[in-house]
Simulated assay, not measured.
Amino acid sequence: MDKQVYVGLKKALELKLEAALITVTSVLGSTPRKPGAQMLVFADGSTFGTIGGGCGEAEGRREALNVITARIPKIYNLNMTADIAQEEGMVCGGIMELFIEYVDTQSSSEKKDFYKDYLTALESKKYPILVTVIQAQHNELLGNKLSIEDLNFLGDLGRIELNKIALEKAKKGARKCQPFIICLSSEFEPCERSSPELVYRLLVEPATTVVQLLILGAGHIAVPLATMAKIVGYEVTVVDDRPSFANTNRFSTADRVICNDFERALESVEIGPQTFVVIITRGHRYDKVCLRKVINKPAAYIGMIGSRKRVKSLISDLETEGIAREALQKVYSPIGLKIGAETPEEIAVCILAELIKVQRELDT
């Protein structure tokens, strides 16, 4: 969930304010935001988050105000026509499908409690997956939600079969970095969105769509890697124990630079299902410390630099210490795609290419 929308939902619950939540569920053509983008609209027209700005967002806000008045959720196709795009100076022209739902903070204590529990889980870094009914045979199911944490869940989609499917799919998609849609027939069988058998659609949202890159080691490869990763859209954290390397002058684009002992620093860093960990420290000893600390974390990716011989020796040492072979086999090493890279900048490119490849594989 977008941080601004999270703040807005907390405000709505605390002050018992009426609101509507807009979620981009699919896009066609050129659009300013991708599926998963959200905006919370209050009855006074104020907003948290964005679905792209301009006339398109204004139209979405108007529809959200209608939902607040009617208290009925709806699907709305926002046509970002060429005329609107030209007026706003944007190169758009596609269509965004929006699911707009009424956020009931007043009459329904059940839904209010659900949102409170869900936001608490987000705040506690439990990485809940949120499932919402956005299309159904019966309108009363629209907007029903399920929050899933490991084997535990809160809420109800309104059908036992939908709950079961949501739990199964959420487990498989726990490491996805982008929301996805589950399409089902009236018999709760998978189908294509274009199929005439389509009856149910479930929107599955990971706890965050922001991919976090944790770079352990602030040497020469880390500088171009942090810069390029930020351009791609990652939230970048760099860790090193040398003040002359781990500083904001050297890493001006990074979101966070931590100068501390690797082991201590990793105690303060959250590693979740959308975290990619790159271990490029200055030596075998530090690599080992870092890998030992992160290997059992739920990271989407753990990669480590080094020759095959060096890496094999390090992994053997950790296995001797009692770390499971299955966990160690998930380490990407030698790190990066093989493109014949030689310079620090080229090596950074091959590492980033591998991160993007893994991320896309997770999202399919």
Rank of each mutant, 00 (worst) to 15 (best):
G283L: 02
P334K: 11
R256P: 11
G8Y: 04
E321T: 04
K74W: 10
F251W: 06
C191D: 07
R201K: 15
A226I: 12
K171S: 13
Y301S: 14
L328W: 05
E161Y: 04
G217R: 05
V41I: 03
L122F: 05
I75M: 14
V331T: 10
G283N: 01
I75D: 11
A226N: 01
P196K: 13
P224A: 06
S194T: 14
K230S: 12
L291Y: 05
G306P: 08
L162G: 03
V349W: 04
G45V: 04
D2N: 05
G54A: 06
I84M: 15
K169C: 05
V289N: 02
L151H: 15
R159K: 15
A43Y: 11
Q212E: 13
I315T: 11
R61W: 06
N144S: 06
T47Q: 03
G49V: 00
I22N: 01
T50V: 00
F153C: 10
T69C: 12
K230F: 09
L130V: 10
Q86D: 14
A254K: 00
E197D: 13
Y127S: 08
E57M: 02
Q359Y: 11
A207Q: 07
E345T: 10
A12H: 06
S195D: 07
G306S: 13
F99M: 08
G283D: 01
E18L: 05
S316L: 14
K312M: 09
S252Y: 11
Y76V: 04
E59G: 11
N144E: 11
K293V: 03
V349Y: 06
L151R: 15
G89Y: 06
V223L: 08
V131Q: 11
M80N: 15
F188V: 09
P298A: 07
S244R: 14
H284D: 02
D261E: 14
N247M: 00
I231G: 15
V277K: 00
I84N: 15
L17V: 06
I165F: 00
P73A: 05
F188E: 07
A43C: 12
K172C: 08
S30G: 11
C259T: 10
V91Q: 03
V238M: 01
E192C: 15
N77M: 13
K230Y: 03
I129G: 07
D2F: 00
A12V: 01
